[in-house]
């Protein structure tokens, strides 16, 4: 998708990037989603509140780039039972803000509500998402995405889709 920075501005470019990511996730477009990452990307979903340290504490997901790739390869096997059949997903992403911009890097946040329907039933996930975006060959890429689930301190059902 062509983006015009000059007319839409940085916020619009970032927002469009986040919308596109959401569309890839809802549509299980795994490879398209994986291509959004930089080579050193880190995908982090902390547990147990707002102050956990992934290098000390358990996280729901703490994937470096090769583990992100492994996650995608597992989904592609068709035998990831928790995603066979795939969850039906639709998410709303909002409250996008650019917090910081310096050099090639942009720090942005958004809120997300994800409706998931699967064999167990229907469920809503809510999160604040933090992005560290980097411009690579003119295109925005995710260098870090942190998903702060509102209820990450509680017992959660399986969450085997890309959030």
């Amino acid at each position: 998708m062509a983006l015009n920075r000059d007319t839409d501005g940085l916020l619009s470019e970032v927002t469009q990037f986040i919308y596109r990511e959401a569309r890839f996730q809802d549509g299980h477009a795994y490879d398209d989603w994986e291509a959004l990452w930089t080579d050193d990307g880190v995908y982090w979903i902390p547990a147990n509140g707002d102050h956990s340290d992934p290098e000390r504490d358990m996280s729901i997901v703490y994937d470096n780039r090769s583990r992100i790739a492994l996650r995608i390869r597992q989904l592609h096997t068709g035998k990831r039972h928790a995603q066979a059949p795939r969850s039906r997903l639709r998410r709303v992403v909002s409250n996008v803000e650019v917090l910081d911009e310096g050099g090639d890097e942009i720090r942005a946040i958004s809120n997300a509500l994800v409706f998931e329907s699967n064999l167990r039933g229907d469920i809503v996930w809510a999160s604040r998402n933090e992005y560290l975006l980097r411009r690579v060959n003119g295109e925005l890429r995710m260098a870090r995405k942190t998903v702060h689930l509102v209820n990450n301190d509680k017992a959660l059902y399986s969450m085997s889709f890309l959030i």
């Binding site: 358990m58 729901i60 928790a82 064999l119 085997s160």
Partner: peptide, 30 residues
């Protein structure tokens, strides 16, 4: 660190192993 990293990859709601085990538990219950 390796014990934590391998555990985080394997278990919990998004774990490579345990999301599938849990899927089996729930299908079994039904």
């Amino acid at each position: 660190r390796r014990l934590r990293q391998q555990t985080m990859g394997s278990v919990g709601p998004a774990g490579f192993l345990l999301a599938d085990d849990s899927e089996m538990y729930e299908r079994n219950q039904r």
